[in-house]
Amino acid sequence: MNTAVKKKPMTWKKFKRFIPIYILMLPGLIYLFINNYMPLPGLTVAFKQYNAAKGIYGSPWVGFKNFTYLFTTNDAFVITRNTICYNLAFIVVNTVMAITVAIVLSELTGGIKKFYQSAILLPNLLSSVIIGYLVFAFFSVENGFVNNQILKLFGQDPIRWYSEPKYWPFILVFVSAWKTVGYNCIIYLATLMGFDKSYYESAQIDGATKLQQIRYITLPLLRPTIIMLTLMAIGRIFYSDFGLFYQVPMNQGALYPTTNTIDTYVYRGLLQLGNISMSAAAGVYQSIVGFILVLSANLIVRRIDKDSALF
């Protein structure tokens, strides 16, 4: 298709030709409209003192008053920092792990490969409540595996895991990797399987080692996939895996400094403190900062490699 045709205004004839495509698009558009656009007027709740009897539109305006509680404490800073830092750590760790596992799996053949693949994928299918209790089985202070077996073996004192925030960044990153690597590696594995085998054959003839093959053939070929998946992850950088941050630390107050993210904060605000306006204020804050982050991430990518940018 040349550019001259593209610039022509859409004619009815042309539109008619695309009708089946538009119909295919319809369910997605309707979903998007109902789910993402219809609730938009609800954003005004954040600027009102919500009164259930008067409803969203009848409640009085209060300006930015609902936002002040976020900033009188350092809550806003803590939840923003946690959300972004965890997601950055997840992007790096999970990508590296997924690629490594995918390369190792691609070298295996037969039944053992199927077995490993299923075993690695399994945690991804577990509910986060169950994962929370699995983690608890390890880190329970009195009966946990870590305190009773591992630390004892090294003659260390038991640690009160659920009241020491400093350990949780490591635990959560580990749990997240354990949970998501299986799924991510499938995508990389599928890409890997599609590579032309003749590259590797000629490299072998030239005497390249396995490591050199990975370094000079596999990784460069994987680059577009890596960039795409990473960009998609950056687009969600301001959203946290709710189950991971709420269920896995068992909603422990003492762990808030390192486990409270925007999503858990809004959830607690709404359901425990029962204040819709203030929760909405935190939600608006999440949207705006998230929007800015995605735009700037895209801008940086565009500077480096224009073709890889999302928009």
Binding site: Y69, Q252, G253, G269, M278
Partner: peptide, 24 residues
């Protein structure tokens, strides 16, 4: 004082079980 109550309640949630259960 709704803003203050919410902010202080959040802090209380964070400390209550540690301080009042004698863990710190």
């Amino acid at each position: 004082v709704l803003n203050e109550v919410t902010a202080v309640q959040n802090i209380y949630n964070e400390y209550q079980t540690s301080v009042e259960y004698g863990f710190v």
